[in-house]
Simulated scan of single mutants.
Amino acid sequence: MSEQPKKPLPFVANFAAGAIAGVSEILTFYPLDVVKTRMQLSTEKSQGLVGSFRTIVKEEGFGRLYRGLVPPLLLEAPKRAVKFAANDFWGKTYLGLFGEKKMNQSISLLTGCSAGATESFVVVPFELVKIRLQDKNSTYAGPIDVIKQIVRKEGVMGMYNGMESTFWRHLWWNGGYFGCIFQVRAMLPEPQTQQATLFNNFVSGCVGGCVGTMVNTPFDVVKSRIQSAPKIPGVAPKYNWTYPSIALIAKEEGIGALYKGFVPKVLRLAPGGGVLLLVVEFTLGVFRQALGPPYI
């Protein structure tokens, strides 16, 4: 009797796994994101990771490290779900388009970039609210107040301020992340146990998160600068389009300024990338056991 062909898990399983992973990651690493944003918005000499932590806690209290948590927490479920669901969709699409049966490095990189571009359209309003709340000079009462003031002063489309820079940030991060995951997995020993599989996923996710962060940090710095400044009618913003803004920051503050906030960012996204992949794969494994054959 021939073995029943295996089927990929349904979209809802990939969506749920990404959502659970995203919420787990942000609850663990959010204070690093606040410090990262503060460092990116400052045009002065950086205090460093520890100095920035100390300054925030001393001057504003420990609770400030969780300022703006609600928007990204609300965002993380759909954001991460879209990330992994889009990666799954684009991976299958490109495999069929290029007539390949197995993923390779080129298709993995292309898939990651496409997933990042897809994800960027979902995250912009949430990122905008988060950045406005994380700013040291923020006077907003909370997320709803941010939305009300932006819509009143800048119109509904003001909620998509920074769309172009967010597109590039997510495209390059996802390309580096998913591209590295494929390569690192291929280099690691073939896992023989479930524990070894989870370890390989964590290691490859950490490396992917580190590389993705190295590639996309300049785009993240620009995005933070663009989204932190409200648009004033008739006044051209200092930071507007991504690549000219990168050149401007490098000219005025030096190349190193494009990597402001890199340390807290990589400390979050390297292990955070590992946590993401670990939780996603673990959750998908639970779905496979629950659904049984013929799912893989």
Rank of each mutant, 00 (worst) to 15 (best):
F84V: 08
A19F: 02
N240M: 13
A270L: 06
H170S: 08
T283Y: 04
L128Y: 12
V235L: 14
M103W: 06
P189D: 01
K36Q: 14
C180T: 15
I56P: 09
H170T: 03
F121H: 00
R54N: 15
R64C: 00
P31A: 04
Y66N: 03
S228G: 07
V203Q: 08
T193Y: 06
Q192V: 12
I181A: 08
Y177I: 10
P293R: 05
M159I: 10
V35C: 04
N14I: 07
C113D: 08
A81K: 06
F182N: 09
K6E: 09
D220F: 00
K238F: 02
Q192P: 07
L95A: 02
V275R: 00
M39F: 01
N104Q: 10
L278S: 01
A117I: 15
V221M: 11
Q194F: 07
K58V: 04
G272Q: 03
G212D: 05
Q134A: 07
V184Y: 02
N201S: 13
Y94W: 01
Y94P: 00
L27H: 03
K83Y: 10
C113H: 12
I255E: 13
V35H: 02
I56T: 13
Q194M: 03
K79N: 09
M163C: 05
I20D: 07
F167N: 03
R268S: 12
L291G: 10
L284S: 11
P72N: 02
P10M: 10
V70E: 11
C113W: 13
G175S: 14
E127D: 10
L27E: 01
V207W: 05
F262R: 02
P10H: 07
T37H: 15
I150M: 05
E164A: 04
K223R: 11
V12M: 05
I20M: 11
N240D: 15
E190A: 10
P271C: 04
T43I: 04
G22E: 02
S224M: 13
M1Y: 14
L75W: 06
Y239W: 07
L248E: 14
F167L: 13
G256Y: 08
D88I: 00
T118R: 12
S120Q: 05
L32S: 03
G256Q: 12
L73G: 04
V222Q: 07
A247T: 11
R64K: 09
Y66K: 01
Q194I: 05
Q227K: 10
